[in-house]
Design a binder for these strands. Structure first.
Lengths: 121, 121
DNA sequence: TCAAATACTCAACAATCATTGAACTATCGA
DNA sequence: TCGATAGTTCAATGATTGTTGAGTATTTGA
């Protein structure tokens, strides 16, 4: 993933409404949600929503699928993964200390909490 | 790490010059680089650079240390890690397919190699 | 074919961000 | 103390982004 794409994806994500939008779509998988539903969830007018959806789709962070009248939007897992992966690799050079903050919750552990100086979340 | 901090960090990173700046500082560790040197590397006037440095420091992505006349800047590994970690966890909900794109290059032990390659471009 | 429902595009305006150059603070060495 | 060096702050300007409301497709069902 080249730098301009990463920057575009970061720009797209660095917005309140769009970040919320991705978070909303994330757990819905391939089913996604129609534009109208998204607008109702996030309290956006259709034109404003359309603008944000276009920005996210352009950046490769969401995809869309038309079903009769409705357009369903869903998170683009690959785009999101590649963006985050580029940050880790190309920008942070896979530094162990950066990676340490990104580990999944330890399986079996009760609370994946604070080693000594405790990374807040 | 709360959402507004993540958004601030993403905004700060979503800029050509600032992204490049973090990439430049990353391999230099705690030593960092003085503002003047950074300006020379990236071809920025001092006031422009100062503006960008302040934005990154404010966002918690770099830190600074004054040594007599000079101010040295270094990457804030924890801030970077927390930002990326928040993206993975809070936004992408630790989805396996997203994580799969972020795996370190070499399977097995993570070699803490210090990539001493110069700044690109 | 028409009206309703769904979503998108566009132009105008407002808000935010980036750049510049000048003025400023702080430190060093003579 | 002075002048030189290293950085920062500020106001003005230009560029980019976000919002709004009106208007424009498309699809569906009567």
């Amino acid at each position: 993933m080249d730098r301009s794409k990463v920057l575009a994806a970061l720009s797209a994500l660095a917005n309140d409404k769009r970040f919320e939008l991705v978070c909303l779509l994330m757990p819905l998988g391939e089913t996604g949600l129609s534009a109208g539903e998204i607008g109702r969830h996030l309290g956006m007018t259709s034109s404003r929503l359309s603008f944000h959806l276009a920005a996210l789709e352009q950046a490769g962070l969401i995809r869309s699928r038309r079903v009769s009248r409705k357009v369903f939007y869903m998170a683009d897992l690959r785009g999101l993964g590649q963006t985050i992966g580029s940050l880790l690799r190309d920008c942070c050079m896979d530094h162990p200390e950066v990676r340490a903050c990104c580990q999944p919750p330890a399986p079996g552990a009760i609370a994946p909490k604070a080693p000594a100086r405790g990374p807040e979340r």
